[in-house]
Design a protein around this nucleic acid. Structure first.
Length: 157
DNA sequence: GCCAACGTTGGC
DNA sequence: GCCAACGTTGGC
């Protein structure tokens, strides 16, 4: 089982939204690297849910991949902010995955806390200028997060 | 609201 | 294929 991190602006879609809905399609990804990572996801992979562009950026909970990558219909919807005229139904360019809610942390693992954790050096999330919204989380970084947060405990595959 | 960093676009 | 211009992301 792999673990990934996905960013969302809580004003757009928050961990509370996912909790309320139970599951949701992660649509609107319009970056090739992020899309390719979504295509690498397997059923049951764990997702760290990250709140970005907000008062306290950080990891706020977890979810699971309940449906692997498949075409994102919002790219054909002219009324959608994610509409992409270059992506046609016969040759879809963008994908989404379906996520199922798993947990919300009592306290988030904040970005500022992560920047101070020994062992997270090199984790792309905390690099200055990092804008990637979907990224893999290597085992050594998961170990550090587990050691530093009582809220995040990895569930065995 | 500012701005640095990054990705994409399009002219050449 | 280069690269300047532009738009977007996201922390602060």
């Amino acid at each position: 089982m792999a673990v990934w991190l996905m960013k969302s602006e809580p004003d757009e879609f928050s961990i509370d939204d996912l909790k309320r809905l139970g599951k949701a399609n992660w649509d609107g990804v319009r970056n090739y690297q992020a899309r390719n990572f979504m295509r690498d996801m397997s059923l049951g992979d764990q997702i760290l849910f990250y709140h970005s562009s907000c008062k306290v950026p950080g990891i706020v909970g977890t979810s699971r991949v309940s449906k692997t990558a498949h075409p994102d219909p919002s790219c054909w919807d002219e009324s959608s902010p994610y509409y992409d005229a270059k992506s046609t139904e016969s040759s879809p360019r963008w994908d989404q995955v379906e996520l199922t809610y798993e947990s919300k942390f009592t306290f988030p693992i904040t970005l500022s806390a992560m920047k101070n954790m020994a062992g997270l050096e090199g984790f792309s999330l905390i690099q200055k200028g990092s804008r990637l919204s979907v990224m893999p989380v290597a085992q050594n970084y998961l170990d550090v997060l587990g050691e530093n947060s009582s809220h995040f405990k990895q569930t065995p595959a």
